[in-house]
Amino acid sequence: MPLLRSRKRFCQLLLMIILGILSFLVSGAEFSAEIKQGDIAKRSDEYFLSVNIDYHLSEKAKTALQNGVPLYWNLLVKVKKSPDFFWDKTWLKVAKRYQLQYHALLNMYRVKNEDNGEVHSFSSLSSALELMSVIIDLPLINKALLDPEHQYLCLIKLDFKRDDLPLPLRPFAYIDPQWYLSSEWTSWPLKK
């Protein structure tokens, strides 16, 4: 019986550690981005998404940026049935990929759209973030791909790529809430 008691105690300890880690990660929501003012428009059988994103860079993220560390975000878009089952098909794609980097020589913030290679330079961080904030008429999906019998949802998430941080920063970025800069999934219904 002492063995069973010690096993129970060990399980309790493990549970407490997991809960501690979870609560620690949840507390990182302070710096997560927010998806605001989304709109889905349908033009000639194609759905387009316009959305406004609010970035909240933590001090650590800003310091890293100032020291030349490039930051990467992916805008993830998902279309799925509502309600959905796990066997239902889900369309997931990386709609946009941004790189934000500070250039000390020019004292400018440079935003690069990784999809088309477009580079924009800004003298202030807020201007650079503003560029990344506004997404207008992002093509989502063709109506032909959707089953007219069902309702669909469009889900959007801004995903901060901690895996693209410099290698020494990565382990700490996973446990430091200041590096949780992603947004939650936000959904809108696709109108028929």
Binding site: T63, N67, G68, V69, H103, A104, L105, P166, L169
Partner: peptide, 10 residues
């Protein structure tokens, strides 16, 4: 310079 600053930061 950026590389050095990044390394210094890291």
């Amino acid at each position: 310079s950026a590389r050095y600053q990044e390394m210094s930061y890291l």
